[in-house]
């Protein structure tokens, strides 16, 4: 990885509830949680299982595939940091494993975006220790 990464955008601020998720990104793993109490799968961020109230979990790497649940193509740069970087597609991806992820769909014009479009991970290596789980349209022949 190039330590002089050209990444321009904001970085995440890992917390005690999602630091293991961000550690996974370093290895290009999109980690999810499986509840040890009832097996329910959820995204990182919430420490308790809403189904059975257990706190114990195991993490696993998701397939990295999903579909667009909804999106918005942002044209107005709401801060200087995004000037010259618009439009971009802020997107809710419904992962094949069930949980949703707020992310960005890249390599796709606003005109091409649609609900239900299959997408796959397109990692952006932001720093040597952290990559961003962006998505792109599922490539032809993949699968």
């Amino acid at each position: 990885m190039n330590p002089e990464s050209a990444y321009y955008g904001p970085l995440p601020h890992p917390t005690l509830d999602d630091q293991e998720f961000w550690e996974g990104t370093k290895h290009h793993e999109l980690r999810l949680l499986r509840c040890k109490g009832c097996g329910a799968v959820r995204a990182f961020g919430d420490p308790m299982c809403a189904e059975c109230h257990a706190m114990e979990t195991e993490s696993f790497a998701a397939s990295g595939r999903g579909t667009v649940w909804t999106w918005t193509s942002t044209y107005h740069p709401f801060s200087e940091r995004w000037r010259g970087r618009v439009p971009y597609n802020l997107t809710v991806v419904l992962l094949d494993e069930g949980p949703r992820l707020l992310t960005m769909v890249v390599d796709c014009s606003p005109e091409q975006m649609r609900v239900g479009m299959p997408v796959e991970l397109a990692w952006e290596d932001a720093t040597p220790d952290l990559s961003l789980p962006k998505f792109r349209p599922l490539r032809q022949g993949a699968g």
Partner: peptide, 28 residues
């Protein structure tokens, strides 16, 4: 209304985007 720090890596920087996500879904 918007954050001066550039918001999230996802590109979410302003409340309007959260409402736009719902509006797009409602259209669908």
């Amino acid at each position: 209304v918007v954050r001066s720090d550039g918001g999230s890596w996802t590109g979410q920087t302003a409340a309007v985007q959260g409402f736009a996500l719902r509006a797009q879904r409602h259209m669908y």
